[in-house]
């Protein structure tokens, strides 16, 4: 941690003691959410999400591949995340860091567990299915990549078009069929700073935090959870955060629906 982060961390804690946040948000407020879809035409789907100053671009590619041996009648999905060196002075060039791998896997789990993508609809013919590659590109880092990435992935998937298959090959000139989605996943990430629990932590708050919990849900069910960092959460806290996750869903879903329209 840079020396300036020590100052910022202390300041975040000082403010929290007075029940305040640096940008004057309430503890359980999201920052402003902005979503733009369809920016990348070569991709079958794409979306760029701004969550405050955090910016993530998601590209979805559909490739004709062989099915997995144990699921011959359905397609595949893969999520990868890159913490690009241009997103922050703290990020370095090189193979994916454990943080990037955790991020991708948590986003993957939410979408997969909710059966969000109808993988059966991706069957083409005997021995041929669509593989859905979801790539998350972090362009500017200012905290809460988990929620920004899930938003970006969902917005991109909601606007993904499946190419027509001709003679067993993709015809990308003809991309009109929407990808079949069975549910929309939203993710809500909380962090613990001292005794306070906050929603949607920015960079300074993340540096000051010692516990993190991500909750991914669909309309009725919790689909994935991930606790990170050193600090713990009590059962009561988790229960409370689950309730808040459902309360916040409407706001996230509205942003997604508007962007996908």
């Amino acid at each position: 941690m840079e020396a300036i982060d020590v100052v910022k961390t202390n300041y975040v804690k000082e403010l929290l003691a007075k029940k305040a946040r640096e940008d004057m948000r309430q503890f359980m407020d999201f920052r402003k959410i902005g979503i733009v879809t369809g920016l990348m035409h070569n991709a079958e789907g794409s979306a760029q999400v701004d969550l405050g100053n955090t910016r993530v671009l998601c590209g979805v590619k559909l490739i004709v591949e062989e099915p997995m041996k144990d699921t011959p009648n359905q397609g595949n999905m893969m999520v990868a995340a890159e913490l690009l060196p241009l997103a922050s002075a703290d990020y370095e060039t090189g193979p994916p860091s454990p943080e990037a791998i955790e991020l991708a896997r948590v986003v993957d789990r939410g979408i997969r567990a909710a059966n969000s993508i109808d993988l059966k609809s991706l069957f083409i013919e005997e021995g041929k299915v669509w593989s859905v590659f979801i790539d998350l590109y972090v362009l500017n880092y200012d905290g809460n990549l988990f929620d920004a990435c899930t938003l970006a992935a969902m917005a991109a998937l909601m606007t993904t078009k499946v190419p027509k298959v001709e003679d067993g090959e993709a015809n990308r000139e003809d991309r009109t069929q929407p990808l079949k989605l069975d549910s929309i996943v939203t993710s809500t990430t909380f962090g613990k700073v001292g005794g306070s629990i906050l929603l949607d932590l920015d960079r300074n708050e993340e540096n000051a935090s010692d516990g993190r919990i991500t909750i991914a849900i669909d309309d009725a069910n919790i689909r994935a959870m991930q606790k990170g960092l050193r600090g713990g959460f009590t059962k009561d806290e988790v229960e409370m955060l689950l309730d808040i996750a459902f309360q916040k869903r409407a706001e996230l879903k509205r942003a997604l629906d508007q962007a996908a329209r």
Binding site: N42, A43, G59, K61, A80, P96, F133, A170, R172
Partner: peptide, 11 residues
């Protein structure tokens, strides 16, 4: 990895 029309590249 999503930059090309026909392929999915490595990161």
């Amino acid at each position: 990895p999503f930059s090309s029309l026909s392929d999915h590249g490595r990161t």
